[in-house]
Write a protein that binds this DNA or RNA. Structure first.
Lengths: 127, 127
DNA sequence: CTTTCATTCAACAGAAACGTTGAATATCAT
DNA sequence: ATGATATTCAACGTTTCTGTTGAATGAAAG
């Protein structure tokens, strides 16, 4: 038994998640993802508006790629980037699972309170 | 105008998000969050099962705290940690917003395809 | 008051990240 | 072939992270 707790996508030991969150932790990289919502783009296109060297952006793109957040398709001399929704979904899922757990606990607690005590005010924070 | 694009929680320039994702990028820190789902705990309790120095864990807790993912309440000589759902929610929201955007686009595209038949592809990537 | 417990702090070494520069590679255009 | 374009790669300096150690602080217990 390997203690596969708390939804770290099976297989990797959470390294996928490590890279995804590390990738998202940089504002430039988040900006790249947002830029790609407008449609696929070459690295040149992405780099143009950014206050950074082309090589710098190229690196960031590499990080996003190996985090599984973008896909690259090489077309001759130009590399086209596109979003990879599954990647972000995976990152979102871990968070979702945590918050779901909390909600469940919160609900259970609320239910228990509602059962055993004089209900203070429906819906309102019971203070 | 400051280009408040794409849901970076107003006020900070995304630094809150930076820290949250950076915090989540570390497996030890994620483990701490998971551990806290079982209930509030002192740093000693959290450190016990981890293959790391107490001081090391203390540092990680500090990171989680300044990322807004946990709350600390000092009680005499012991520090009790609890989860801070709003923190994770904020991190989750950015991701959710992105994926929502994609879904909307995907839906629109699907609808268009269904309506107009062999439309090649909007924008560049015409294969 | 002295000891134990819970925690931080400071200094350190090693590793990784960020961005730059200059050179290398491969593709397209003439 | 020549030259321009799109991109990576390697090396570098700086900064930030990770974890350790040893000392310092402060509260509880004896």
């Amino acid at each position: 038994m390997v203690e596969e707790h708390a939804g770290e996508g099976p297989g990797d030991g959470g390294q996928r998640l490590d890279r995804a969150y590390a990738a998202l932790a940089d504002p430039t990289r988040r900006a790249l993802l947002v830029a790609l919502r407008a449609g696929d783009a070459r690295i040149t296109d992405l780099a143009a508006p950014l206050p950074m060297t082309f090589a710098g952006v190229s690196r960031h793109v590499g990080v996003l790629e190996s985090a599984g957040l973008v896909r690259r398709s090489v077309r001759g001399r130009e590399h086209w980037l596109s979003l990879r929704p599954e990647g972000l979904a995976a990152a979102g899922d871990w968070i979702a699972e945590q918050t779901a757990f909390w909600s469940r606990r919160a609900d259970a607690l609320a239910a228990r309170l509602a059962r055993t005590a004089p209900v203070p005010a429906p819906g309102e924070p019971a203070r």
